[in-house]
Design a protein around this nucleic acid. Structure first.
Ligand code: ZN
Ligand code: ZN
Ligand code: ZN
Ligand code: ZN
Lengths: 145, 145
DNA sequence: ATTGTTATGATAATCATTATCATTTGACAG
DNA sequence: CTGTCAAATGATAATGATTATCATAACAAT
């Protein structure tokens, strides 16, 4: 945890940003909820517990900054809000998601399943892939009877 | 075109919805811009050209209805708006997208590249796939020097 | 201490989408 | 034909997420 924050701190410094207490509190919340997919409002509520004076705008700004630095990914599952998802450290690809139509759960697939597909796309469509988003919608293992 | 509208009409009727002039005008716009990825506002502007009395709310309602009927798919590329994409007729899977980070172009991949991946997900994660969303972000063939 | 830059918090503004409601349309019964 | 009723529409208000604004605070570097 502390080392992870330290590395994010260094990453911020390398672009001459500071790790202010507000930003650190926000990063801690994200780390503590690594498996969730929190909206800005949800992050705000959680950060307030450890840093009650923080403003909503600061949370938005911090999330935007972390997105720029590729510490988090901003994703959208079609409900009205953006959600923020911590990247696996050092992962060169963004993980995939399983959204259950029954119970709404969002599970993650960390494995890179797209290696072969990406080769095909690069070659056949002459497209230089930088990133991807892959989400499956269906029925999760819990909801299958 | 006409046959296509006729089939959509039947599909509507089968759920006891009517193909009103407003709805037909909206469907025509979608058919005429099959390769684009229009926002509700953009559809509204285009429909107004042939049906100036139409209201924005009606366009939203029609797009929602067509989404329900799976005539169109609602997608989100991360700019602030939802976009509506006509499904290939009879296609059981939703096509994929190539978003260019350079010029903003959105190209389509109609082939189903995910067959093998989906088998793996169904088996290894015990997840019953109903639909998917796959988007690649990168540099398109036009922008590669 | 002075200056200048960056970050913050409160709040207003924006903008896409949804809800409301009076009116219109069109199918259908008598 | 009229009258009736549910569905659909259009104008507009309301909502809700996100962004912009701006005065103030933090803080590093003279
Ligand atoms: Zn995730
Ligand atoms: Zn489930
Ligand atoms: Zn498309
Ligand atoms: Zn391009």
């Amino acid at each position: 945890m502390e080392q992870r924050i330290d590395r994010i701190k260094k990453q911020l410094h390398s672009q001459s940003y500071k790790l202010t207490p507000q930003r650190e509190a926000t990063v801690r919340v994200l780390l503590e909820h690594e498996d969730d997919h929190l909206s800005a409002e949800e992050v705000y509520m959680l950060v307030k517990e450890k840093y009650p004076e923080i403003g909503l705008a600061t949370v938005y700004r911090t999330l935007e900054l972390l997105t720029e630095l590729k510490v988090v990914d901003k994703i959208n599952f079609g409900d009205g809000v953006s959600r923020y998802d911590l990247r696996q450290e050092g992962a060169d690809h963004f993980h995939h998601h399983l959204v259950c139509l029954e119970c709404g759960a969002v599970d993650e697939i960390q494995e890179d399943l797209l290696g072969d597909v990406e080769k095909v796309v690069e070659k056949r469509w002459n497209f230089e892939i930088k990133d991807h988003r892959l989400t499956f919608h269906g029925i999760c293992y819990r909801c299958r009877t």
